[in-house]
Amino acid sequence: MKIAVLDDYQDAVRKLPCFSLLEGHDVKVFNNTVKGVGQLAARLSDVEALVLIRERTRVTRQLLEKLPKLRIISQTGRAGSHVDIEACTDRGIVVLEGVGSPVAPAELTWALIMAAQRRIPQYVASLKHGAWQQSGLKSTTMPPNFGLGQVLRGQTLGIWGYGKIGKLLAGFGRAFGMNVLVWGREASQQAARDDGLNVAESVEQLFADSDVLSLHLRLNDETRGIVKLSDLQRMKPTALFVNTSRAELIEENALVAALNRGRPGMAAIDVFESEPILQGHALLRMENCICTPHLGYVERDSYELYFRTAFQNILDVLGGKHDSIANPKALTPALSR
């Protein structure tokens, strides 16, 4: 079978132990990203099975109509809105869902919190230019000694969304002596209470009281743009806003505007509306914003888990096992044996 793996930026997939599962198949791994439907169609014209790395490429009905040989899409992690599952079903293309782990994104979130609160990226950049113990961050609009940074103990960690990642983050916060404050749906609020955590009285209180606020929500029609400029403006001028979930959870341009106005004073961001982002992106130019290139799940253990499952799901479907299929109505006789 002809199999393609898209968007392997670091050429890591071929070096994973699980890559051997595809031995005997014709596998092509692409390291650069193309966005245009025409470019993607040319790249995938002979492909029968497509392996997607999270949401790096959108699979639309328009694209699928140009891929007559495609029969399988194997998703690393859960299939999201980036794949038109209805169009896949109409064309007899099965979509296979994988598994993931909350550990890597939770640890990345915590690393960003620690780095941001101690101004580590700014100090490192200054040191490389010969400046000793200089973080910058001396704008007149910033609070006094904002560039010094501060410890986490005794601060309030706000968490919006108390799922698997949120729960891990709350544990990290407790271990560091932080006061954890949770907001979310009623089920999340009750789960937080059951775990002995404080629940905010309102989303307004969450933003106003948090010294560090981290966003952990799924992106859907209900949550798109759920964080408004008015929410961010309630934060303290010394506060840190963290987003390792989805950029579209924040109202368009709201974060840039809020940072320019000094509330919150700092942000740490791992996700962007369009990825990879361009060099001139507004957030990259801001000294009070730490940006990472969507690294939440990018580490060896997560890659091995994601791809071992994605590859095994393809083999299982070819062998007549259908447990991972998200759209069973798409099964064709050739895949239904």
Rank of each mutant, 00 (worst) to 15 (best):
N313G: 05
V271R: 02
L127S: 10
L259C: 13
R119C: 03
A282R: 05
A106G: 06
A106Q: 02
A326R: 08
I250V: 15
L108S: 01
E222T: 15
V182L: 04
T244S: 13
A334D: 03
G98M: 01
G296D: 02
V242A: 14
E287L: 07
G100C: 12
Y123F: 11
A258V: 00
L16W: 10
E299F: 05
L96M: 07
T60I: 11
S20Q: 12
C289T: 06
A247H: 07
R234S: 10
D26E: 14
S336Q: 02
R174Y: 04
R234F: 14
F311S: 01
K69F: 13
G319E: 11
G130T: 09
S126P: 09
L157I: 10
G130K: 09
R224H: 13
R193Y: 08
T309V: 12
C291Y: 01
E48C: 09
L229V: 07
G158V: 09
R218H: 14
S210R: 03
R56Y: 15
E299C: 13
Q279K: 12
L169C: 15
T60Y: 02
G225C: 14
D195T: 05
A247D: 12
G265H: 10
V203H: 01
P102C: 04
A49T: 08
N243R: 02
V51A: 05
F19G: 02
N288F: 08
K329M: 08
E186S: 12
L249S: 12
F172D: 07
P276I: 04
L44F: 14
V182P: 06
E222S: 10
A334F: 01
G24V: 15
P328T: 02
Q133V: 01
V124G: 09
F30W: 03
V59T: 13
N253G: 07
G36F: 12
L295T: 14
L169F: 09
Q190E: 07
P121M: 07
L152K: 00
P333W: 00
L240H: 06
T223R: 13
